[in-house]
């Protein structure tokens, strides 16, 4: 399911501009959306989910124009949405919560609904605790309930907003793997500020900065943004002043710094292969005013 976004702008009451002329094409498959906090990712996701109206611009999802009520309804019928700040009814069990959402998504046949909920509880590994109240669930378990509710109506479009924030490393890996497995012939739009989540799951991505499109392409294209701009410097003196320090590791009596910089930050700096994080930082630094 292809998403076409043209010249999308969102200005909130009070004048804050979250999106500023964003144009973007999202193809079928797993697609990453990177950006710093406040870059406009959540606003963009909420517009795609039909929860916010844009100030101007056009969004067409699978041929349905979000500007019309019919278009929004058609998209909601094919949409699975996991919001950034996921909430649940604490007094319902996971099974009952999913049953409620399934009813709202139009799964009216009781037997089909039960079957689908049982399948999804299995997929997210919550079958054992399905009848426990949600108020006793950990953050990771709630995220998995969230992904289960998003998948209830077998959506063609899955929008997940910062899904791994607050999860421990094991949960994060499990969650990323699950999302990758789900992609298949779906469009899965993964919004995050954690570069590693995109690096491990997506082939294509877009980067937002200050509500504008900073980059659109493949992961390797973004990595190449930092080509010949990543260096390691080992020194017992102060950190290199030039460029951006990505990491600092103690080594012997000194420190080994990894630096993204257009020019060698130190006469003894050695060039190294860039990662996606380096590419992202090089891109954002190159765009910085």
């Amino acid at each position: 399911m292809r998403i076409d976004v043209s010249d999308l702008t969102k200005t909130y009451k009070g004048g804050a501009r979250a999106l500023d002329g964003l144009s973007l094409v999202v193809p079928t498959g797993m697609y990453g959306l990177l950006g710093a906090n406040g870059a406009g990712k959540t606003t963009f996701m909420r517009i795609l989910a039909g929860l916010l109206k844009p100030t101007s611009g056009r969004v067409v999802i699978g041929g349905h124009d979000l500007a019309t009520a019919e278009g929004r309804l058609a998209v909601r019928r094919t949409l699975g949405y996991l919001p950034q700040d996921l909430g649940v009814y604490p007094d319902l069990s996971a099974r009952r919560f999913l049953d409620y959402i399934a009813l709202l998504k139009g799964l009216h046949s009781r037997s089909a609904r039960r079957r689908r909920i049982a399948e999804l509880l299995e997929v997210v590994a919550l079958s054992d605790v399905a009848d426990r109240r949600l108020k006793g669930f950990s953050g990771g378990m709630l995220r998995r309930v969230g992904i289960a509710q998003a998948l209830l109506a077998d959506p063609r479009l899955l929008i997940v907003d910062e899904p791994t924030t607050g999860l421990d490393p094991e949960e994060r890996i499990r969650f990323r793997t699950l999302l990758s497995q789900l992609a298949g012939d779906r469009t899965v739009l993964l919004s995050t500020h954690i570069v590693d989540d995109v690096a491990q799951t997506c082939r294509s991505l877009a980067v937002l900065g200050h509500g504008r499109l900073a980059f659109q392409g493949t992961v390797s294209e973004l990595v190449s943004q930092a080509h010949r701009q990543v260096w390691t410097v080992t020194t017992s003196g102060p950190a290199p002043a030039a460029g951006r320090v990505v990491s600092a590791l103690p080594e012997g009596a000194g420190m080994r710094y990894r630096v993204v910089s257009a020019a060698p930050p130190d006469p003894y700096a050695r060039p190294v292969e860039p990662t996606l994080e380096d590419g992202y930082l090089a891109l954002m630094d190159g765009r910085a005013p």
């Binding site: 909420r46 989910a49 039909g50 929860l51 309804l73 909601r76 019928r77 949409l79 949405y81 919001p83 700040d85 996921l86 909430g87 649940v88 009814y89 604490p90 959402i101 709202l104 998504k105 139009g106 969230g146 509710q149």
Partner: peptide, 21 residues
């Protein structure tokens, strides 16, 4: 309550009508 519990996003993204809900 939906807003306080932050369930409103999930509910509003379903095809159910807001008036009916």
């Amino acid at each position: 309550r939906e807003r306080v519990l932050r369930v409103d996003g999930i509910l509003d993204a379903t095809p159910s009508g807001r008036t009916a809900r």
